[in-house]
Design a protein around this nucleic acid. Structure first.
Lengths: 145, 145
DNA sequence: CCCTAATTGAGATTTAATCTCAATTATCTA
DNA sequence: TAGATAATTGAGATTAAATCTCAATTAGGG
């Protein structure tokens, strides 16, 4: 299963960076990987605060940062000062409905290819990107009249 | 000149929303429009705090929000909890160098066309979008060896 | 098993952003 | 144009996410 693999990636990252492998870090990663879709750091803080061996807020923030640095999660956007993250699975972009707030994930290979071409024309070497299209989703559009 | 027009857009927006036209709002808009490129709210707060008729922090935040709602500026990203905005002129996207932090503005018509097509396939009506490509710029790449 | 450096927890601190509310001001109406 | 009324402002208090502090604990190398 995918979790095993992500675990190893994380442990490799920690080793490479000369950081220790601690139960706190691994437990926080486990909790993060349990999140379906988008999550807030506070979700994790509350869960870890209740766990058998409770983990402090500061440690959660610190670990989330290393998980982010390792490229295993990514920041999506803030909704009134609450940062929304998601577990990185396959790469995809977002359409965000400004009426219902729903987030539609999509991926289009042609778009990616074209982006790379544009980057080349600027002599810019891309490593990752985010694209957010704001608008009105099909559901909200039909319930509008 | 463009400023006149933006002024009118803003005043129309305020009227439409049933808000009053106040000297504070107009002065803050003027200051915002003076910003070349990207700016932080704190830049505006400091300027207005020193102006002849000083304007409070709360009012700056409140006005910036209306200017944003009017679509005259847009939020780019946060750099350690400082939100970066920019005056909306022509639409463009960003390449952000993760070494020097430099932001390259670009625009590609084919990319926009393709985005619209993807939206249609999801029955999503786009109103605006942001695209940020992270990577390494030409300058940093050459000074890397 | 010991040593040293890294990490953790708990609470204090920081700071952008928001809120409160009395005083002021813009806009509408007659 | 004055007077009524609702919106707005200023100053400082408040909120809350994120970071920091530092003594106590723990991981990892030898």
């Amino acid at each position: 299963m995918n979790k095993k693999n992500t675990h190893e990636l994380y442990i490799d990252f920690l080793r490479t960076e000369g950081m220790n492998i601690t139960p706190e870090r691994l437990n926080i990663l486990d909790e993060v990987l349990k999140q379906k879709g988008h999550f807030k750091i506070d979700d994790i803080i509350r869960k870890m605060g209740r766990a058998e061996k409770r983990i402090s807020r500061a440690t959660v923030y610190r670990s989330i940062k290393t998980i982010d640095d390792a490229g295993l999660i990514k920041y999506i956007r803030s909704i009134n000062d609450e940062k929304i993250y998601e577990v990185v699975k396959g790469h995809h972009d977002h359409m965000i409905c400004k009426i219902c707030g729903n987030i539609i994930e999509f991926h289009d290979r042609d778009l990616e290819t074209l982006q790379d071409a544009v980057c080349r024309s600027y002599d810019f070497t891309p490593t990752r990107h985010t694209m957010k299209i704001f608008g009105i989703c099909a559901k909200c559009k039909e319930s509008d009249e």
